[in-house]
Design a protein around this nucleic acid. Structure first.
Length: 250
DNA sequence: ATGTCATCTTAGAGATGA
């Protein structure tokens, strides 16, 4: 099966790009983030027309996550204990349990949002205790963390900034220690499979990006291939994130 | 790098977040 994670930066604004992309790439399961959409405005019908069931959690202007599946959708959960913002959606999709996450950005060191980010990660880790690391399970989404120095275009530009601190990286590593593997995409242009490029300052054109979107999967998920579709980040009407795609033997 | 984009607000340019 083919699985995808993609921060679409508004599903409403992105629909003219998202729907043709789904038709062309034919993924079985898609984890979406930043739908920026209330549940009653979610484009269920457009997605159903392409064969997808959807579980969405969103309340409007900010955040919002979804799981799309054309291989079954059951055991839906939209809750991360103690955190009311719509940043997590999970479901059983055929043989694979999928969680779509949009981790809080953190904003700045010393900002309360940074502590919120770390607390959110802790809750996500605790939530994993309800699952079996020997079973096929994927946690996918925008982690808002660059795990290694090479995962940003210039680590020197990230002094005293979020996304690269030890605490944030430790929070991701705690997920790995539970039993998840960081499924890195094939190297892209510039040797690092960046998934995000800021809209400003021609960052995409200069390939000044970050690898902050992740597919984390248990060892029970045999990964055949994984890549970033940079084409989806190009041109008019693109999200500032590219989709991370993987083919798995399930 | 701070050159854009998306959304909301008691109508329309500014605030907010990324």
């Amino acid at each position: 099966m083919r699985i995808v994670t993609w921060n679409v930066n508004s599903i409403g604004a992105r629909l003219p790009r998202l729907l043709p992309w789904l038709e062309e790439n034919a993924p079985d399961v898609v984890a979406l983030q930043e739908t920026k959409c209330a549940d009653d405005a979610f484009p269920y019908a457009d997605l159903a027309a392409l064969g997808y069931e959807a579980a969405h959690s969103g309340d409007g202007r900010w955040n919002g996550v979804a799981v799309l599946s054309r291989v079954g959708l059951s055991d839906v959960s939209l809750v991360l204990e103690g955190h009311p913002e719509p940043r997590l959606a999970s479901a059983q999709c055929g043989p694979l349990h999928v969680t779509s996450v949009y981790v809080p950005n953190g904003r700045a060191l010393g900002d309360p949002h940074y502590d919120y980010k770390l607390a959110w990660f802790r809750s996500l880790r605790e939530r994993l205790d309800g699952f079996d690391p020997a079973s096929p399970l994927a946690v996918m989404g925008d982690m808002n963390v660059a795990l290694h120095d090479r995962d940003v275009w210039d680590i020197g530009a990230f002094r005293d900034s979020t996304h690269v601190t030890s605490a944030e990286r430790d929070a991701v590593r705690a997920l790995l220690d539970w039993g998840l593997v960081d499924v890195e995409a094939r190297p892209g242009k510039g040797d690092v499979p960046f998934t995000y490029w800021d809209y400003r300052a021609g960052m995409m054109h200069k390939n000044l990006g970050m690898r902050i979107d992740y597919l984390l999967a248990t060892r029970a998920v045999p990964v055949r291939d994984a890549w970033v579709d940079r084409e989806a980040r190009k041109g008019k009407g693109a999200s500032d994130h590219a989709p991370l795609v993987a083919d798995v033997d399930l």
